[in-house]
Design a protein around this nucleic acid. Structure first.
Lengths: 217, 217
DNA sequence: TTGACAAGTAATCGGTCGTTTACTATAATA
DNA sequence: TATTATAGTAAACGACCGATTACTTGTCAA
């Protein structure tokens, strides 16, 4: 039993997320692990294979996480309704847990960075970036708000516009959070995000949140 | 007189913005111009020199643009006030012109992309990215709001929080705009941004905007 | 004990990298 | 017209690239 294969994956993950695929050589990966580059080929058939394995792992983790963490009450009954009984409380909890995940989880952070660094290279990369970090979340939230409006838990308005306003600080604060390694500062950033959600819910929810109960997920 | 030097710069700019510095070779640049890579060295002393020249140009253009386009009524009198007589109208005009610039100007778009692709490689790159596209604009807007609150043209509140809410859609929509080459769709995105500003001013300005007058800059 | 396999090394492969050199054609200058 | 600078080519440089080979271990099952 050997964990070398996993070590290679983790090392390459960090390098790819920092410098981008093309800028990382097999020698660099091997060097960081104090082995020769030939040894890498005992575990992966080539450089692309390392990248693809990492990538599949990240995608899989993201999917698992999405399924576990919520997508509050999503349903696939073919009917018009995608969500059911979405409360403002569950929306807040969901967004906070998502922000926590994307800023603190090592895999999630590196996933974002890799997507960011490859996004302009071809159409496929562009679409994937948009799906995970750009239009994707906006469209999702738009659908969520639309349902909530119909159920009466959310004030009427343009759901697309609302979704942009709601998701944008998430997106911006991810980037700002990346730029600091100071944990105290990261908490401040998370606080700003929480304040954003509260402010938003205050403005649009039809029934107010109790602000003295902390929400865990 | 020769424009080859400029052509090299423009070609390299596009490639760097698409693939990142390391992924672009001298041969690729030369190939796109149908010359041999040796010829590049008649105009630039090495690859880094091409990149640095591009980068200085982009920085210079950004500074010129910033100076010309506004920073509404900025003053350096050493006093506490950074801005003077900032109206909600000038803020709207400024933000719209900035958004137009960063989404439609070719140099500006490529500047953003290059900053994006290099941002994780070292501390210097990270700080520059944040200065131009991350914390920088947020801090600037925070100062702006703080002044406007003191002058009474803006409702009281946490200026940092407000600045994040205000700038975030700008930042998100830049990224979404990058992903489409359809001009009609780009206009829709710009409309969303305009709606965001209007909504924001509606919420926080102490005197309402006349929405029937179009603002040019 | 032996044989097979797994996991490493060192050397080497053909290519491509960034860069330099030697040379050529062209056009402006003296 | 002779000279000189400019802007290009073609070839080669050493270094490094991703990938392969031949070889050496150590481990473990038959």
């Amino acid at each position: 039993m050997s964990n070398t294969k996993e070590k290679i994956l983790l090392t390459a993950l960090h390098l790819f997320a920092q410098d981008g695929y093309e800028a990382v050589s097999m020698s660099k990966i091997a060097g960081k692990l104090s082995i020769t580059k030939g040894a890498l080929y005992k575990h992966y058939k080539n450089k692309r294979d390392i990248f693809d394995t990492i990538f599949e792992r990240l995608c899989q983790l993201d999917i698992e996480r999405s399924r576990k963490a919520g997508v509050p009450e999503k349903e696939f009954d073919g009917a018009t309704k995608l969500f059911r009984n979405v409360s403002t409380k569950s929306v807040k909890a969901y967004m906070q847990s998502q922000f926590q995940y994307w800023t603190n989880d090592e895999f999630a952070c590196n996933f974002r960075k890799i997507l960011t660094l490859e996004q302009y290279r071809n159409l496929e990369a562009t679409n994937l970036y948009q799906k995970v970090l750009g239009r994707g979340p906006v469209d999702f939230i738009e659908d969520l708000f639309r349902e909530m409006m119909e159920e009466g838990t959310w004030r009427k308005g343009d759901p697309k516009q609302m979704a942009v306003e709601f998701y944008a600080p998430f997106y911006l604060l991810l980037s700002i959070s990346d730029a600091t390694s100071d944990n105290e500062e990261k908490e401040k950033i998370a606080d700003i995000f929480t304040a954003h959600i509260d402010c938003f819910i205050e403005k649009y929810a039809t029934s107010k949140l109790q602000n003295n109960e902390d929400i865990q997920i």
